[in-house]
C-alpha cells in the first residue's frame, strides 16, 4: 500500500489531538470544580497546566506543517490536515477559557461565592459532553453526529441566559455583590464560548467529510 508512512503520521496526529481534547476536558472540569469549592490550589494547578495544552498545540501544529511541506496532501488527506489544524486551535482556546475560569477563583481573594453554583457546573458538564462527542464524531468521520452536536449549543446558551438573569437579580437586590456576581457571569461566559468552539469543531468535521464549508448553528452571543 502506497503512502503508508503518511497514514501512520495521520494516525499519530489524530491520537495527539484526542489526547489534547482529554487535557482540555480535564482543565474545564478542574476549573469549575475549583470555582465551586473555592479551591485556590486546584485553580493554580489548572492555570499552570494550561502551559501543557499550549505546548501540545504547538507540537501538533508543527507536525501538521511538516506533513504539508513534505507530503503535499490533496483531497481527503488535505482536508484531514486542515481539520486537525483548526481543531487544535479551538482546543487551545478552550484551554484558555478554562484557565480564565480558574483565574476567577483567585480573583475572589478568599471571599465566598455570591451563591452556591448549580447551573455553572451543569453548563460545564454539557459543554464537556459536547466536546467529547465532537471528538468522537471526528474520529468516526460522522458529519451527521457533528450537526446534532452543533444544535445542542442552544441548550448551553439557554443555561447561560438563566445564569445571567439570576446573577443580575442578585446584583440588583444587593449591590455589594456586583463584583463577585460579575466574576460568575465571566465564568459562565467562558463556558458559553467553549460550547461555541465545539460548534467550530463540528463545522470542520462537516467540511472534512463533505468538502463543504458551512456555518451550522449561529450563536446569539
Amino acid at each position: 500500500m502506497a503512502r503508508e508512512a503518511f497514514r501512520e503520521n495521520m494516525k499519530t496526529l489524530e491520537q495527539d489531538l484526542i489526547s489534547a481534547g482529554d487535557m482540555v476536558c480535564k482543565a474545564i472540569n478542574r476549573s469549575v470544580t475549583a470555582l465551586q469549592e473555592s479551591d485556590v490550589e486546584g485553580a493554580k494547578k489548572t492555570i499552570a497546566d494550561d502551559q501543557l495544552i499550549n505546548k501540545k498545540r504547538w507540537n501538533i501544529e508543527e507536525k501538521c506543517i511538516r506533513l504539508f511541506a513534505t507530503q503535499q496532501p490533496v483531497a481527503t488527506d488535505l482536508r484531514e490536515l486542515i481539520t486537525v489544524l483548526n481543531i487544535i486551535t479551538d482546543l487551545e482556546r478552550m484551554g484558555d477559557h478554562a484557565e480564565g475560569i480558574a483565574k476567577i477563583v483567585l480573583m475572589h481573594e478568599g471571599q465566598p461565592l455570591v451563591k452556591p453554583l448549580i447551573n455553572i457546573p451543569n453548563m460545564a458538564e454539557k459543554a464537556i459532553d459536547m466536546l467529547k462527542r465532537s471528538l468522537e464524531a471526528f474520529v468516526k468521520r460522522d458529519d451527521k453526529m457533528a450537526r446534532v452536536i452543533c444544535n445542542e449549543d442552544d441548550e448551553v446558551d439557554l443555561i447561560y441566559e438563566k445564569i445571567y438573569r439570576s446573577l443580575l437579580s442578585i446584583m440588583i437586590a444587593d449591590p455589594k455583590t456586583i463584583t463577585r456576581a460579575t466574576y460568575l457571569i465571566w465564568a459562565a461566559h467562558n463556558l458559553e464560548r467553549i460550547a461555541d468552539r465545539v460548534t467550530n469543531i463540528c463545522e470542520r468535521i462537516v467540511y472534512l467529510v463533505t468538502g463543504k464549508m458551512e456555518e451550522i448553528n449561529v450563536s446569539n452571543y
Partner: peptide, 19 residues
C-alpha cells in the same frame, strides 16, 4: 479535483493511495 474530487478512484490516485 484536488480538494474534493467526486470519484474515489481520482482521490486515490491524486493522494498516492493506489494499492
Amino acid at each position: 479535483i484536488f480538494t474534493r474530487p467526486r470519484e474515489k478512484l481520482t482521490e486515490n490516485y491524486i493522494s498516492g493511495h493506489f494499492g
